[in-house]
Write a protein that binds this DNA or RNA. Structure first.
Lengths: 322, 322
DNA sequence: CTGAAAGCGCTTACAG
DNA sequence: CTGAAAGCGCTTACAG
């Protein structure tokens, strides 16, 4: 900016005026400044501008795993609604299920001066957030609890929802129920497996876990392949419980291709589940509410950071279809 | 920070060291600083920190209309891929189909110091970006061209894709083809209507636009209601062409409920379109490529801002199902 | 319509 | 292990 001022033969203040489009500058002066500034390829430093103005527009950060998953996009809407009501805008960034990226993304966001942060943790350690929290950043975790850190969190009622889904299948008479989930590093998957076990225990049924519990698939295709393998095995399941929406549609495709009448229940509802043939019974989560509660918790922390750590559980709901 | 230093009886530099977790501070000193800082509820000013360090992590901004629309989430992934390859992270924000919000969100993002910006414009005037662009911000528009501004843009081949879809229906012998789209303020909708007209003209068929062209629906439910009304009218269409994925599923539901065998083609592909009964023929856009191209164009501008304004058209593809 | 001065809240060398 | 000084690149009053 100083260079521009020198070249145009004016003061810093005048350059500032032109750059910010303030009215009161003589046209010729403004033109001279503009020429100098194009000439030098000048670009305003926003950090300095923000510092001097002593106010950036208020915003909060949100880190999710994957925007293309409708679960996260609905959660994001919930966060946005509440943020807007509080006059804040949301800066969203995705960790792409990459722990290293989670960390760098979080830090890139905080470096930009946000009032608070909501995180769907992916890595197995959020210790790196400690200095930021110490520096006064408020953080709320959603969908999964933090690790290596004690902080507020908002989660679905995974165990109970899963228990009800599997109970539903047991009540229908199924005794060989497969569980298709992610690998053990995924918190929600292990919680939902616990619900699967609980339902069996309560019903006095021993699950053939060795053959029926599949932990690993992450994509629709992988879930399809795993389900196909299950259905083709010597003693196949009569029902499948899939741990999230992607795995559910993968299992649905595999069952359909097999041509056998295998029951299916999914954790997390998805678009068109009601009009598939056969339709899909699900344990519906409420991602909007997860996001909304997380944001509300964050803003209450922003208003008053004291008080014990909170852990909010959002209920799930069995939707029986077909 | 000065207050903390005073209270702890140390210099600014020492407070800075403690806040940033630099090693070489005597434990007792550090502890004293920490106490003072908690006491005062100190929180580091990130703008000042960034300014002094003379480097924020490199990032670009992306403004879309609605994250919960899979079209935008796939577009976002494309942007993210390219940004990551360039060592930049993406700050995403949604305008929620609100023009006022688009403006404030864009400005909030630019105030945070981003290298460049990609915008899916919603408002009918992006003039407000002029000062930012003058200040050196590079901006690329995607999915729709900017208005009130000349700038780079990346778009789908709307007219041609739409023309092929409608030609497909005409070739099948349909003569009463409905068009279900958004209102005229939506650029993509009017472009796709032009393709609809072009196909009719080429085929020498006069479309009954007065009764068959519905402009207005924005949601799945609205599209369903509009389609039901069409199907219940005296001289109903034998085929429907819907202008985006939401409108398509809305039309699909209405057709299914009506029990009549009406053909359907949608613009933009969607999950499970292939396994619905009947399956849905679509003109597939390539949202990942839209995002990728927009990001590539942005980074090429960042490297060299000169050169003429570019307008990149991404092809679409008819996927015939059922 | 234009400018000189002070200051935004940090961090970076440099000393000791 | 700790500090005094200068400076990051802007903007805000205040004058004229």
């Amino acid at each position: 900016m100083a260079a521009v001022a020198r070249l145009a033969g004016v003061s810093l203040k005048t350059v500032s005026r032109v750059v910010n489009g303030e009215a009161s500058v003589r046209p010729e002066t403004a033109a001279r400044v503009r020429v100098a500034w194009k000439e030098l390829g000048y670009r305003r430093n926003d950090a300095a501008s923000t510092l001097a103005r002593a106010q950036a527009p208020a915003g909060i950060g949100l880190i999710i795993e994957d925007i293309s998953d409708p679960f996260y996009s609905r959660l994001t809407r919930g966060v946005q609604e509440v943020a807007r009501a509080h006059g804040h805008f949301v800066m969203l960034s995705s960790s792409e299920e990459n722990s290293e990226l989670e960390r760098s993304t979080v830090l890139a966001l905080t470096a930009r001066g946000i009032a608070g942060l909501i995180v769907v943790p992916h890595s197995d350690d959020q210790h790196y957030l400690e200095p930021e929290i110490e520096s006064g950043l408020s953080v709320v975790f959603v969908d999964r609890p933090p690790q290596g850190l004690v902080a507020d969190s908002v989660m679905s009622n995974n165990i109970e929802g899963s228990r009800l889904a599997v109970k539903h299948l047991l009540d229908l008479g199924h005794r060989r129920i497969a569980f298709v989930g992610n690998d053990r590093s995924v918190y929600t998957s292990t919680q939902r497996l616990r619900g699967y076990r609980k339902a069996h225990t309560v019903a006095g049924v021993t699950a053939d876990e060795e053959r029926l519990v599949i932990l690993g698939p992450r994509t629709e295709a992988e879930a399809g392949a795993a389900t196909s393998a299950l259905l083709g095995s010597p003693n196949p399941p009569t029902a499948v419980f899939a741990q999230n929406n992607l795995l559910t549609t993968g299992a649905w495709r595999a069952i359909r291709e097999s041509g056998t009448p295998v029951a299916l229940v999914g954790f997390d509802d998805f678009a068109l589940a009601d009009v598939l043939d056969p339709p899909v019974t699900v344990v519906a989560q409420d991602p909007m509410t997860l996001g909304r509660k997380a944001a509300e918790l964050l803003f209450s922390r922003l208003a008053d950071a004291t008080g014990p750590v909170q852990r909010i559980i959002v209920p799930t709901r069995l939707i029986v279809r077909g």
